[in-house]
């Protein structure tokens, strides 16, 4: 009897997916998310020069160069397009949960939602901003997998009731070795896959104000899963963590650049 039970237990242990045995506790998963949030957040300011390219089937490519200013402690963000010339001066301002877009050619601000496609590309505000996953989502574990040559944790996140986020459901693939996000999939409220994002390269830069490294994805590849064939690539060309002028995070500043 004992022998038969032992053998059955052995067989069960053998055939059960390894994830069932290795699944991290909920608190551990929240810690993983907090690690991502902490790494990408700077206690001081953040400035980056970004290149955004969108490819859409049967259409001309969209290309932008933009500057991103962040003051994470105050939840403020500015994205200002610098190139091409026709787009220079247009930009976004995020303050708390408000996202505004400005077009100097008509001198108007408009309020936008979290779903806003930045400059008509597949990228969204959250792709340029600090990460806030631990507060906005509740994680569950899907399993341990491999992504290319990397071993990854596969997590499924559900937005909390009060979170103002673009996507109610998100799946993340976190590099086991570094804890960084390598792949992300965003789902609509009806669980339809909307976009897949890859973060093939992460970089870190020492922040004196934070007294720790600030992480940022050097390259972001976003694939539209609804309009197949459409894709957007974001490249962070340079990052500077020096403190920024307070005036930058106001509507008046963005307006002043084109007046």
């Amino acid at each position: 009897m004992f022998r038969r039970s032992f053998m059955a237990g052995l067989a069960l242990a053998f055939f059960l997916p390894s994830t069932a045995l290795a699944a991290p506790a909920s608190a551990e998963m929240v810690t993983m998310l907090k690690t991502i949030d902490d790494r990408t957040t700077n206690s001081g300011d953040y400035k980056s020069l970004v290149y955004i390219e969108r490819k859409e089937r049967d259409k001309s490519d969209l290309v932008y160069q933009a500057v991103v200013y962040r003051r994470d402690e105050l939840d403020k963000l500015v994205i200002m397009f610098l190139k091409p010339q026709t787009e220079a001066g247009k930009g976004y301002l995020r303050v708390d949960n408000n996202l505004f877009v400005y077009d100097p050619t008509v001198g108007k601000w408009e309020r936008r939602t979290e779903r806003e496609r930045i400059g008509g590309t597949d990228s969204q505000r959250s792709d340029f901003d600090q990460s806030n996953l631990a507060q906005e989502y509740v994680p569950t574990y899907v399993g341990e997998e491999t992504l290319g040559k990397y071993a990854v944790h596969h997590l499924k996140l559900t937005a909390t009731a009060t979170a103002d986020v673009a996507w109610p459901f998100v799946e993340l693939w976190l590099d086991k070795a570094t804890g960084n996000v390598l792949k992300r999939q965003d789902f609509s409220a009806s669980s339809k896959l909307m976009r897949t994002t890859y973060y093939p390269e992460w970089q870190k830069l020492y922040s004196a104000s934070k007294e720790a490294d600030v992480y940022f994805a050097k390259e972001i590849r976003i694939y539209d899963e609804v309009e197949k064939g459409n894709q957007t690539t974001v490249v962070i060309q340079s990052v500077d963590l020096a403190s920024l002028d307070d005036a930058i995070f106001t509507k008046a500043w963005l307006e002043s650049k084109s007046r």
């Binding site: 992504l147 290319g148 040559k149 990397y150 590099d175 070795a177 570094t178 960084n180 390598l182 890859y198 093939p200 390269e201 992460w202 970089q203 870190k204 830069l205 020492y206 992480y215 940022f216 050097k218 590849r221 340079s238 990052v239 500077d240 963590l241």
Partner: peptide, 17 residues
């Protein structure tokens, strides 16, 4: 992006400029 061709570690040090 994550296959055999990528030899370097996924995190690199950026240069502050």
């Amino acid at each position: 992006l994550f296959g055999g061709g990528a030899a370097e570690a996924p995190v690199t040090e950026a240069v502050a400029t």
